[in-house]
Design a protein around this nucleic acid. Sequence first.
DNA 1: CGAGGTCTTGAAGACGATCAACAAACGTGG
DNA 2: CCACGTTTGTTGATCGTCTTCAAGACCTCG
Lengths: 238, 238
Amino acid sequence: MNPLIVKLERRDRLSEEEKAALDTIVSPLKRVRSGTDLVREGERPRESILVIEGFAGRYNTLHDGGRQISAIHVAGDFVDLHSFLLHVMDHGVIALGPCSIATVSHDALRSVTREFPHLTRLLWLSTLIDAAIHRRWLVAMGRQPSAAQLAHLLCELHVRLGVVGLTDQDTFELPLSQSEIGDVLGLSLVHVNRIVQELKRTGLISWVGRKIAIRNVGKLRELAEFNPMYLHLETESR
Amino acid sequence: MNPLIVKLERRDRLSEEEKAALDTIVSPLKRVRSGTDLVREGERPRESILVIEGFAGRYNTLHDGGRQISAIHVAGDFVDLHSFLLHVMDHGVIALGPCSIATVSHDALRSVTREFPHLTRLLWLSTLIDAAIHRRWLVAMGRQPSAAQLAHLLCELHVRLGVVGLTDQDTFELPLSQSEIGDVLGLSLVHVNRIVQELKRTGLISWVGRKIAIRNVGKLRELAEFNPMYLHLETESR
DNA sequence: CGAGGTCTTGAAGACGATCAACAAACGTGG
DNA sequence: CCACGTTTGTTGATCGTCTTCAAGACCTCG
């Protein structure tokens, strides 16, 4: 089951023709190992990459070697749909753990914009949701304490993974190391470690290996000031 | 001269029909005073707002009263084009200084997506550039020292204002108070004040009233690690 | 079984926040 | 045009969060 379709149908009804169109333009699956660079900064891809399984991250590197991850993508997400119109990648994309991916050529996307206005709007929508997530991360980084910021990330992933059926109650898998979490939150790995311990100690979460369980959804969301509104999960005509 | 058209033509050629279409769907100008809420969080606008003159900011408020500004918009920018597809505003928009604005109804935008695929792609593009800016801000907030972060903001505004003809050499007007700059950068106003002084003292900028002059573009960009690539200024077929 | 990655802990220090007070600039109305 | 109140900018002092450095434990996988 194509998780892109699951994700889009959560936001609006798709016609059979639209689903068929999506299925025909998506390439066969490809497996990549953890750490693979899916796209590099400065490249001009001729196709966009869709995550079918696993996690991927967009990142930038600074002169001192520091890295900032600006997005985490899960099953059903395009990691670089924007390269269709932006052309030059202004960041890299890396597989955070082993992934299955598929691709869609930019030529095919251009055809979609000519022949399927409604489907075009839904693809546009998915990039708008990416941007909404960026903004929420900015709020968390700028004005929330680090524990709330981490709590927020977990709340967000919990919901986003739930949409594509990758949660089991309040449990989900997250293959990121604490160092990678640091690169997401803009924190040092030492500090991430201490915050994780704090969230565990206060009974909000448990986190063993790559398995995370949210033990107290209400309290975690309260700490994070999490309101899923920004994920725009309503099913409406768009 | 419609600054939206100036901005889009910087990225791709517009046909006469497309320019005419844009001109017909844009409402007459409206002046608003500084501090006006252009859109409120939670609203469902039936039209999107275009800045013609002045500055506007998107923002979110936290329980403790803290505010984070996640985007600054200048002439030619839509402040909430995304509400066309997202429907519910996940943030507010405020006039940062007096503004002239115009609006475009969502019905008109939907017609554009049916009748003008290329123009649709350019409107989509403009939201993708917003997202690229969000990501660059995330990198700055997460992994750059506050002086570099402020330097980067000034470099970015310098370029973006230049695109719509609002710079005079390396000089431009910025009507934001230091407190508002703090809400952009995620810093306290006291600290912003000290960083501004540092940039002035080291001869990188001058800043008197709302007039900013970049005194040493090279050094300021070096400090900021500014690379305008993420603004996607190339004129190409999209 | 070894090696590299990951997690954990402690100690010291830096960066930026907060608190507090005052100066300067601005706008508004008398 | 001046008086006044409000917003904005400036400075000092103290405090806390998060970083850096360092070292050891644990684990996982080839």
